[in-house]
Design a protein around this nucleic acid. Structure first.
Lengths: 124, 124
DNA sequence: ATATTTGTACGAAATAAATCGTAGATAAAA
DNA sequence: TTTTATCTACGATTTATTTCGTACAAATAT
């Protein structure tokens, strides 16, 4: 089983999930918008992620091309599971209500959630 | 600002939020159900949490009594905020749908969430 | 009264995570 | 063809986190 990504690794994964195939530079530049760390730090982290099995890479060219080895949904599922267990006493409901209570969710999104709710209930 | 609790600290906080005032032994015994670490490990962690300002304690008696210095809701709010930002591209909706998709939420709870949804929409 | 248990303090080791610098190769620019 | 820029590899450092052993005091049991 691939290990749980660390916080930094998750930042990188997010970028890769969004962009698909990337070079270290791609990631580093995107990361630079929110973080102020050196290029080799990003490189090193991605190399480690590769060793851990979090990323695959194509080494055909000098500039390696990386891509995610684990899916976004699957990863989120595992993270949420763990998060609910350790921070919300195992209750997904509590997490959901806390997340919604934050305020920053538009009417449209709330409706989407409602529709999703209907769908789940029907399956029960 | 009190720092973000680590994973181990969160396990301890969860227990304390549930029990209120506790001794190290209380926490350690509860922790023993899910973890297999020594008593002094729990002690040390709680001492560190005290120094960090995560816990307060009453030292009047030999056996110190600890209690949470930060509220459960406030902490969860911060954690969710951070979690949504790093793992869900800032979209609370995505997190909510992932959490609900897990399957383990009862019909009753889903209804509670629906009611909460109504309430939020009315406030908009 | 003495031995055992239970408690805190505290240093330190073990482990994990994040960061960076330097070397050396290749590619691109001048 | 030099020089400059760009890449990877990799060791090393720094910082954070988790874990535990030992010392010593207080309470409890024998």
């Amino acid at each position: 089983m691939t290990p749980k990504p660390t916080e930094s690794e998750l930042e990188i994964l997010s970028i890769i999930w969004q962009k698909g195939k990337v070079t270290v530079r791609d990631v580093h530049e995107k990361l630079a918008e929110i973080k102020d760390t050196g290029y080799t730090t990003t490189l090193k982290t991605m190399q480690i992620m590769h060793v851990k099995g979090l990323l695959h890479r194509d080494e055909k060219n000098r500039t390696h091309v990386y891509f995610a080895a684990i899916g976004e949904k699957v990863t989120q599922k595992n993270l949420v599971e763990n998060f609910v267990a350790t921070a919300f006493g195992g209750s997904a409901k509590n997490l959901v209500m806390q997340a919604l209570g934050q305020g920053n969710t538009s009417k449209e999104e709330l409706d989407e959630i409602r529709a999703f709710l209907d769908q789940i209930e029907n399956e029960k």
